[in-house]
Structure formats: structure tokens, C-alpha cells
Nucleic acid binder design. Structure first.
Lengths: 337, 337
DNA sequence: GCGTACAACTTATGCGCAAAAGTAACCGCC
DNA sequence: GGCGGTTACTTTTGCGCATAAGTTGTACGC
């Protein structure tokens, strides 16, 4: 790798002059030398040593994307197309802005923090952090942080959140189910916090507005860990007669559930209606095609990255960005009387 | 961020002493000072500045994972669960070895090369490169390179390839189809090079061994670009009566095709048998569940990363690693007479 | 014809770290 | 008692870059 010093030596000039040309500092250098240097740079295919540059500038041009997986969801997380689309959106945006992306997947917040400080990343995008983790990280590192899908009022004082109007999206879907004659609607999720809680609230609100009483027994818990999922699916299938429709917090769960039901001879949507949330390829390719709440995951990644880049450029950004959702009516809901 | 210099000042000793403790150079430093320094390091939560360290050491502790997307497959690539599982496998392995992963997605080899040299990565994992690209990159940067799923005899002189026995896997599947009475078997792919070509060879070989003549018209070309895919699917569906079974080079294509067929009232496996390759969640969750060739994508990522780490440690590795495949018989193949 | 302003450079410094080279004290040994 | 060897340090250097500070040379105004 050729260095500025060597280039300067060969061109018989100072390193500062070369450096000035590299940084396009016109006015500091004559057109003549500028051309000469530029030609030479191209010839030797000069690439700056990023470590030296970063050391001198005290920046890194790296944006960290930390995916925190709950230990019990690890496999699931990385399998989910949601994640790769998100990564794709972030990477593309960051790269176009001249930044680099360092990906970090862990279930340990401390490990993530160590990683962040080691690399002195310029900014951080966090996904899947527990609410308090985001705060912990942001308090320790005074770098801009953008969280994705984090629900925490306290957190919003410390970082920007990019999310959805989860409550509204769910509300719309439940309202749609009710309009199709459904009253016994279950809510399937793996936890009752953050995003899932917001969706649960939308569910409750829609029921309430329709005069249907919320029953806690209609909250169906799925255990995503690979050695438990079959059991929890079996339980849910066994109880399927209690409901006419099940709202699942993700397409993944919806499709998984439909498979389990189908295997037991319970047909969707004839015997029971199933809806999801996300609108990813899983539901799109499924037959019957999944009725679901659409969210634009790539846009989420892009928005998160854009917001972070703005903050790095010193611009103000709202501390809460909610992307819209819309219903995608396909074939897994039956109209009943 | 506290520096070694500052620590040395506060402890009233030289930076070298501190540095020696950090690097565990016993014998260079007394137990007393060692303990003192270690205590202090813990107290101030010292984290080395990686840029300075890398500059001084001329290494980076970064492994680059470059995903090259053919421009027309970009969306597709990042959507495919294949990619996220692969990323997950690589990231996990690299992280456990104390390395970091920089992810780079691009359709431009030159851009990837620039990225590589900018960051002075210690090693590179390439996926989706055209065969010659890998050689170009490896000739320019004398760093260890591991390619995934690259078919190039020439390339194997320059780098290690981690792949599958694609030919055998396909051979086994076609043989199975034939054992189920199928003779008119189509081969669906989007190109005829690399992995797909190896699978095509397996297909041809199995036909030949069964005394069935290969017809080039049985090669079905799918155009994955979003504005062309519907058209090519329609074409294929229109011709579906010509075959009793279609081998698809990926589960994604298989499931996509089944959806298209189903939408036209053509049932799988009653009217036509469809098989895939990969065995990912797409086919697992599909009903009827997809009969496919299993490959362990995570193992692929892990193996690639492991191999690279070995090379970085100066160990010899084979220049060609083929992971095994096996058939997964599920419900998309009908036995015919 | 002298001071000033400015263009076009060069020299020097430091970012934080690792490591080579240097130093000083001490111990044992013939 | 002088010398090699060892221990436990310190001083110095340099990685490649950016930049602050310094140095020319020259055109211009009065």
C-alpha cells in the first residue's frame, strides 16, 4: 500500500500538498500541481489508510448495527427475512453516504457496548434491545443512537426511535376482522412488552370500540424456542375451536400456525381465519396468501440510517418516527355471520 | 476515552509498562505493578483505541464479508433467508474468535475491492462473486480469501472455496424423482453457470444413468427481476403440462412457482410435482411441505469463517471444501406410473 | 521602494499505540 | 571487584495521516 509520504517523495513535494489535493482543498494548491498529483494518485491507485485517518481525525466512519437477540430467539431472529431486509436497507443507505457498516449480533448488551467503544463507531443503530439497554448504551457513549422498534418513553429522551404505528395497524386489522363478522378473536404473541404490547393495545382498543369484552384467555402465548415451539403450537391448535380468528404478531408466526393447523386437518380460512403482521415473503408466497398488516421493513432500515446520518451531520431530528402501516387483504380471512 | 498515556501518568509509570500489562507480557513487569495496573484498568474501564492499535500493528482484526449481488437480483438476494442465515453463521464464528465483521453488499466488484483495501481487512469472505471476480480480488490483495459457492478451477489456485456437492445433491433428487415414476422432469434456474451449472450437470447425469435423453427445452429459465418474474412464471405455468415434475434450483423458486401454479388452478403435487434445493423455512412452512435437497447454510457460513481464521493463523487448509447434502422427502412429489 | 496581502507551498506536531532500544539496579560468581 | 545476566523498568521511535504553524516569492498599492 502506497502512502502519502511515498507519493510526496516521488513527486518531490510535501505530504501536505498531496493531502490537500486529496481533500480537494482548492486555493491551497495550484492547478498545475493539483493535476499532477491527481494523475499520480490515479496511476498508483492510492487508497488512504483508514486507521491512520481515523486516528488523526478521531472518527471512524463506521456505523454499528447491533442486533440484540434474546437468547431464546436467536435462531429465529436471524432466520427471519425481516432481519435481512432491515440489514439491507441500513447497509445501502450508509454505504451511499460514505460510511461503513459493522454488524454485531449478540444477546449480551455489555458485549455490544464493548464492541461499540472498541471501534469508536460514529453512531449506532440498535435493534431488538430491551428498552433499558438502549438507555444504558446511550448514557455511556455520547454518540448518536437510533433505535428500531423500541418502546420506551424514558428512552426517547436519549435516542431517536424509528418504529411503526403498531397500535393503529393492529387496530385496523382487528376492526377489519370484526367487519367480517368475527367476534372471538385471539391475539398470538410471544411476550407482552414493547412492540407486542403496543399491538395488544390496538387489539384491545378495537375490541372495546366494537363493544367486545377483552378476555385475557384470548391472549395466546407462543414459545419460539425450537424445543418448545411444537408444544405451544399444539396447545394453540387444540384451543382453536374457541376462536373464529387469530391475530398473530408476525407473518412468521402466522404462517407457522397455519402449517400446524393444516397438519391437524384444520383449514384456513374455512375453519379459522388467521392474520399476520409484517407482510413479508413468507405470507406473500403462502397459499392461501396471508392477510396481514403491511410494514415497509426496508424503509425502516433506510429511515433509521438516514436519521442517524442527519444527526451525525448535526441536524435535528424528531425523537420519534412512526412509519405508516396498511392492511393487505388476501385470502386467510373468511367472512362469517 | 482514556488512553494508555493518561493511565501511565496517573499511575506515575511509563506507557510501555501499562502496555505490557495489557498484553499480558509477564516477566516484563513485577507482580506488584501488574496488579496495580490491572486494578486501575478495570476501574477506568479501559478500551484500546483500535485505530491506533491497528495502525501500529498493521492489521485490522476485521474480516470483510462481501456479498455481491447481480444487479438484477439485488432485492432478491437480500430477501432470501439464505443470506441472513449465512451472515449469522459467519458473524458468530468471527466474533467468537475475537474478530469483527464488516458487511459489504454491492453489485460492483471494483467498489468491493476499494472497500477491502480501504479497511485493510485481514481476510475476506466472498459470496456471489462471479468466478473471475474472486481471482481479480485475490490477485490484487494478498490477503486470505474464502469464497462461498464459487465454481472455478482457476480460482482454486487463488483461494479456498466452500461449497456443496451440488452435482451429487441434484443427482440424488432427480434419481428420487425417477424412482417415483417421473420421466418428464424440467430443470428451473435463472442462469447456467457456477452452482446452477453444477446442479444442471447432476440433473443431466441422473437422466443419463436412467436412460432418459436430456432435452434442452426442459431447461426452464426464470427471470428474477421483479418486473419480469411474473411473465416468466406465466410462461412456465403455461408449459407445465409438458412435465410431470420440475426441479427448482432453490426453495425460493420452488415456492414461488408453486404459488403461481396454485393461482392457476394447477395443484401440487396432484397435477405436477415440484422440488426445491436449500431446505429453508420457506419450504418447511409451506403446505404441502416442500420436498427438497437439504443444505446446512449456517454450517456453510461457519465453515467459511473457520477456514479463513485457520488461514489467518497460518494453518494450511484444503482449497476446496464440499459440504454434504441430503434429500428431504416431504409432500410435493407424487408417485406416478 | 517599502509594506502588505496573498498564493503556494514546506516543516513540524500529534493522534494512541506497540515495540525496539536504552538504562539502572541488583545478584551471583569466578 | 569486575563482569555477565536478569529484572523492572523508561525513553524513543514510527505506523500514516491531518493540520497548525511557518516560509517563501511575488504582485499590488501608494
Amino acid at each position: 500500500m502506497i502512502t502519502i509520504k511515498e507519493i510526496a517523495r516521488q513527486l518531490n513535494m510535501s505530504t501536505t500538498t498531496v493531502s490537500n489535493v486529496i481533500h480537494g482543498k482548492d486555493g491551497e494548491v495550484s492547478d498545475d500541481t493539483k493535476k499532477k498529483v491527481e494523475k499520480f494518485l490515479k496511476k498508483v491507485d492510492y487508497v488512504p489508510n483508514i486507521n491512520a485517518r481515523n486516528l488523526a481525525q478521531n472518527e471512524s466512519k463506521i456505523i454499528g448495527l447491533a442486533l440484540k437477540a434474546r437468547a431464546d430467539k436467536y435462531e429465529n431472529l436471524i432466520m427471519d427475512p425481516f432481519v435481512s431486509v432491515l440489514i439491507g436497507g441500513v447497509e445501502e443507505t450508509i454505504r451511499n453516504a460514505g460510511y461503513f457498516m459493522m454488524l454485531y449480533i449478540s444477546s449480551d448488551t455489555d458485549e455490544i457496548m464493548r464492541h461499540v467503544s472498541t471501534w469508536n463507531v460514529d453512531g449506532l443503530i440498535l435493534f431488538g434491545m430491551l428498552n433499558d439497554d438502549g438507555i444504558r448504551v446511550s448514557e455511556k457513549y455520547k454518540k448518536p443512537i437510533v433505535c428500531i422498534d423500541t418502546y420506551s418513553l424514558e428512552g426517547l429522551k436519549h435516542f431517536t426511535n424509528v418504529g411503526l404505528d403498531d397500535e393503529q395497524g393492529t387496530y385496523d386489522m382487528i376492526k377489519y376482522l370484526i367487519s367480517q363478522g368475527h367476534k372471538k378473536i385471539a391475539f398470538l404473541s410471544d411476550n407482552q412488552s414493547g412492540v407486542d404490547l403496543a399491538r395488544l393495545n390496538g387489539y384491545k382498543k378495537a375490541l372495546k370500540d366494537a363493544g367486545i369484552k377483552y378476555k385475557s384467555s384470548n391472549f395466546l402465548q407462543i414459545h419460539p424456542k425450537s424445543d418448545e415451539i411444537d408444544e405451544s403450537l399444539a396447545e394453540i391448535c387444540d384451543r382453536s375451536k374457541e376462536f373464529t380468528a387469530i391475530f398473530c404478531v408476525s407473518d412468521l408466526y402466522a404462517v407457522t400456525l397455519i402449517s400446524a393447523l393444516t397438519d391437524r386437518g384444520i383449514n384456513v380460512p374455512e375453519d379459522i381465519s388467521i392474520v399476520g403482521f409484517d407482510d413479508n415473503m413468507l405470507g406473500q408466497l403462502h397459499r392461501p396468501a396471508l392477510t396481514t398488516v403491511h410494514q415497509d421493513v426496508k424503509a425502516k432500515g433506510i429511515t433509521a440510517a438516514d436519521t442517524l446520518l442527519k444527526q451525525l451531520a448535526g441536524q435535528k431530528t424528531p425523537n420519534q418516527i412512526k412509519l405508516p402501516t396498511h392492511l393487505v387483504i388476501r385470502d386467510t380471512v373468511r367472512k362469517i355471520n
